Amino acid sequence: MPTRGDARRGARSGARRIAWPPTLAAKRAQPFDVSHLRFRPQIPRGGALHCFVLDCSGSMMSGRQLAHAKGLLVALFDQVGASRDDAVLICFGGARADVRFGPAIPRWWNERWLEPVGGGGGTPLAHGIRAARTVLARAARRRPAQQRWLWLLTDGRSADRPARPPEADRTVLVDFERGAVRLGRCAALADAWDGLYLTPDDLLG
Results as ranks from 00 to 15, higher is better:
residue 147 Q to N: 06
residue 158 S to Q: 07
residue 131 A to C: 10
residue 145 A to K: 12
residue 173 L to R: 01
residue 163 A to S: 15
residue 172 V to T: 09
residue 167 E to Y: 01
residue 174 V to E: 05
residue 160 D to R: 03
residue 148 R to N: 09
residue 151 W to Y: 15
residue 177 E to K: 00
residue 133 R to H: 12
residue 169 D to V: 05
residue 173 L to V: 15
residue 133 R to P: 01
residue 161 R to M: 14
residue 146 Q to L: 09
residue 150 L to R: 06
residue 152 L to F: 07
residue 150 L to Q: 06
residue 170 R to N: 08
residue 162 P to T: 11
residue 142 R to Y: 03
residue 128 G to P: 03
residue 162 P to E: 07
residue 141 R to K: 12
residue 155 D to L: 09
residue 136 L to C: 08
residue 174 V to I: 15
residue 153 L to R: 05
residue 131 A to N: 00
residue 154 T to E: 00
residue 175 D to S: 02
residue 163 A to K: 07
residue 141 R to S: 12
residue 142 R to F: 04
residue 142 R to M: 08
residue 165 P to S: 05
residue 163 A to I: 09
residue 150 L to G: 10
residue 134 T to N: 03
residue 152 L to M: 12
residue 143 R to E: 08
residue 142 R to D: 14
residue 170 R to S: 08
residue 148 R to Y: 04
residue 159 A to R: 04
residue 161 R to D: 13
residue 154 T to F: 04
residue 158 S to D: 05
residue 155 D to V: 07
residue 170 R to F: 13
residue 174 V to R: 01
residue 173 L to W: 04
residue 143 R to S: 11
residue 160 D to L: 09
residue 165 P to D: 03
residue 128 G to F: 03
residue 177 E to V: 09
residue 146 Q to S: 10
residue 173 L to E: 06
residue 145 A to P: 04
